[in-house]
Design a protein around this nucleic acid. Structure first.
Length: 420
RNA sequence: GACCCCAUCGUCUAGCCUGGUCAGGACACGAGCUUUUCAAGCUCGCAGCGCGGGUUCAAAUCCCGCUGGGGUCGCCA
């Protein structure tokens, strides 16, 4: 039975590297009909915070990485103490003050890694390992080994940064007489320049991506493509089909640089193929928070607006930026657009257009366009000479969807009003 | 520094195991089409096996070295 775990420490938010580790563990469990366990490694009471704990759980749920079993190391201190005592009794560990330390014997430790094959390490360079700290709490490696054994973890899938911990942990397994699980060390996610992923690189927390308007499906899709490929030149991969094709052996060995461009592209693809109703539902919290809509809003009208922008936004927040002028009257007018198209006085033409539009009975794209084209012909100017200034007057921007579609979603009343 | 891991377009990758297809796809970038603008979409294009040795009739693919990058060296996890 395959049993894997994701073991984050609540000393920080769930970041994209951790999310990918969780994802790969989850995919492996689901692909093998095994169990996915979430274990919170909160042995460091000083640095662990409830806030991080909550954020990690929420982000996991948001991404759709449901777990079958849940544990918290802070509930298990007695267990670690017992096993440390056992090693003490057997003479495999010794005390230094209150701390309990494992004697490291000289040997060549062989690690069998599913991704990298065999790795050999000479323990000559490894010093005796602290198992229990002076304050009575277990060290990371010790708690990790005890838990992985007791929880019958079959495969330890974690970041490459743990490779050098592995020989130390194998010695603990051996001292305890525990069965050694299989290991798979994932390549690390690098920042866009190929360096270490750090706070210096803006958004690292999963919750940050949620705030920026990314869809969980897109994040998950992007993350699985970092170090793994479903084959067949496929880019958009739903979790279900990825699970069917998933194989640890096919995971890459080299680190992967994070590309915001590609993530955004994927997010745009997911937004495009989302049923409008679902897109509206995803947009509503953002619109409410921004104060663009309140409890009572016209869903039909919102649907028209969303349809107009669905194909041109790459994040949910983009929608707020592009369509804000439809919800509020004191929208920001782009300075460049203003100087480019509104530097000369259009008052008279705008008034004329406004008046003609006001008289339309059935205000739709066809009727608005007809009125507009007739006026342009009458004035003897090119359509574009009026289209752009009008767009800026109505939307505050020099770019956007077709002008007449824009007028219709804005509504006759506001269109007329903004032109006069 | 020591130890460990890694190396295909700028980036993510397919191909490597089981040597022999113009090294394929995607993002980004460039051009064109479309068009009232910008996106989107469609078409086309640019661009890569880090270097040096082997092995072989034949090497991106197997072996060695170099270089480069990354990771770890905590009573943090």
């Amino acid at each position: 039975m395959v049993r894997v775990r994701f073991a984050p420490s609540p000393t920080g938010y769930l970041h994209i590297g951790g999310a990918r580790t969780a994802l790969f563990n989850w995919m492996y469990a689901r692909s093998q009909g095994g169990k996915f366990i979430l274990r919170i490694e909160d042995t460091d009471r000083e640095r662990s915070q409830k806030e991080y704990f909550n954020e990690i759980l929420k982000s996991m749920e948001w991404l759709g990485l449901n777990w079958d079993e849940f544990y918290k190391q802070s509930d298990r201190f007695e267990l670690y103490r017992q096993y440390a005592q056992k090693l003490l009794d057997e003479g495999k560990a010794y005390k230094d003050g209150e701390a309990i330390i494992l004697k490291v014997t000289k040997q060549i430790v062989k690690i069998y890694d599913l991704i990298r094959d065999e790795i050999q390490v000479d323990t000559e360079t490894i010093k005796d390992q602290v198992l229990m700290k002076s304050d009575g709490s277990p060290t990371y490696s010790f708690a990790c080994v005890v838990d992985d054994s007791l929880m019958q973890i079959s495969h330890v899938i974690r970041g490459e940064d743990h490779i050098s911990n592995t020989p130390k942990q194998i010695m603990i397994y051996e001292a305890l007489g525990f069965k050694i699980p299989k290991f798979a060390h994932l390549p690390l996610i690098l920042d866009p320049e190929g360096g270490r992923l750090s706070k210096r690189f803006g958004a690292v927390a999963v919750s940050e991506y949620k705030k920026e308007g990314f869809l969980p499906e897109a994040i998950v899709n992007y993350l699985m493509l970092l170090g793994w490929s479903p084959g067949n030149n496929q880019e958009m991969v739903l979790l279900d089909s990825a699970v069917k094709k998933f194989s640890i052996k096919k995971i890459n060995k080299a680190g992967a640089a994070f590309s915001m461009d590609k993530l955004k592209w994927l997010n745009a693809q997911y937004i495009k193929q989302l049923p409008v109703d679902q897109l509206i539902d995803s947009l509503i919290p953002f619109l409410k928070e921004k104060g663009y809509i309140h409890e009572n809003y016209d869903r039909k009208k919102l649907e028209d607006i969303v349809r107009l922008y669905q194909g041109r936004i790459s994040t949910l927040v983009d929608f707020l930026d592009w369509a804000g002028f439809l919800f509020i009257d004191d929208f920001v007018v782009d300075e460049q657009a203003k100087s480019k198209y509104l530097s000369q006085d259009h008052t008279k033409t705008f008034r004329l257009l406004s008046e003609r539009l006001r008289q339309i009975k059935d205000f739709n794209t066809a009727s608005a366009e007809e009125v507009f084209r007739n006026l342009v012909t009458e004035l003897g100017v090119k359509a574009g000479d009026l289209v752009h200034p009008v767009r800026v007057a109505l939307t505050g921007k020099e770019v956007g969807p077709g002008l007449f579609e824009t007028m219709v979603v804005l509504g006759k009343e506001k269109t007329v009003q903004r032109l006069s």
